[in-house]
Design a protein around this nucleic acid. Structure first.
Length: 263
DNA sequence: ACCTAAACCTGGGCGC
DNA sequence: TGCGCCCAGGTTTAGG
């Protein structure tokens, strides 16, 4: 599932390919990922527009266009942006000169949208932004009344962390997923802040986690799935203390932790 | 206003 | 071998 590291991997990879390119059309095999606009109008809105760059906002990819407009892509669970089509191809973006970028999505949770104005996406701070400091994080946590695991998954709370990295971050910080956000001590908040930056940085360096569906724009798997410490490892020994990793469900998502290392 | 849970989807894995 | 069940989860929507 694409989270910050996977989306950032895609962004960096396709940016040199799409920057400066002009849309000449769309080839739509299945329109169901296109939301809030008809396929026909989307094509009309994109045609002749030049891609100025790509911003990643949480798990969204935002393509600012010239002379106006914003193409926004969310990969959902199984969405892909590819240089070559795969069996789950849904939409092909065609550029002047004939080159194409392919959007595929087996499970149809991905979304393609268009906005005339810069979209307000209602997202929490970016983990790598300068204003995401431990004191700021402490303020954010104090306002929440849920558990830390669910807070980390909330995109309005913090941008870009999904289920895999929420589990990995909490293990690294030694914090139990069911702890209440407002119960965390200053030293735990600092450890958690460090763990968020460390795990996400490492996952970007390894080009994401290909636990199941994720591949980069060339169709290649990432490398972080071999470095997961708890996610998907229920019943297996903790890599630190050999206690068996436990799986519970929180917010309808699998939650993995070491009962001994995390408290 | 806040939180929880269902709904959206379907390929792949597993059990029978 | 093949059928059918069930799981995966990011976001939106509905309900409490």
């Amino acid at each position: 599932m694409p989270e910050l590291p996977e989306v950032e991997t895609i962004r960096r990879e396709i940016l040199p390919f799409v920057k400066g390119k002009v849309f000449s059309g769309l080839e739509i095999k299945d329109h169901r990922n296109i939301k809030g606009i008809t396929p026909k109008l989307l094509e009309k809105k994109l045609k002749g527009k030049k891609i100025l760059g790509i911003e990643r906002r949480a798990k969204y990819l935002v393509f600012p266009l010239s002379p106006e407009g914003f193409l926004v892509v969310h990969l959902g669970m199984t969405g892909r942006l590819l240089f070559e089509p795969d069996p789950y191809l849904k939409v092909s973006f065609v550029f002047s000169g004939g080159k194409k970028l392919y959007f595929s999505d087996a499970r149809l949770f991905g979304k393609i949208r268009y906005f005339d104005e810069d979209p307000k996406l209602d997202l929490g701070p970016e983990p790598f932004s300068a204003d995401f400091t431990p004191p700021k994080f402490k303020e954010m946590l104090a306002k929440k009344k849920t558990t830390i695991k669910l807070a980390l998954l909330d995109q309005k709370f913090l941008s870009g962390v999904g289920n895999i990295y929420a589990n990995e971050v909490l293990f690294r910080a030694g914090i139990h997923p069911q702890r209440k956000t407002n119960s965390l001590k200053d030293n735990e908040i600092k450890k958690l802040h460090d763990a968020i930056l460390h795990v996400l940085t490492e996952a970007v360096r390894y080009r994401g986690t290909s636990d199941s569906w994720f591949v980069d724009a060339r169709g290649k798997k990432g490398g972080f799935q071999f470095r997961l410490k708890v996610y998907g490892r229920d019943g297996e020994p903790c890599l630190k203390c050999k206690t068996l990793i436990k799986r519970i469900v929180m917010g309808q998502r699998g939650t993995y932790f070491c009962p001994k290392c995390q408290s």
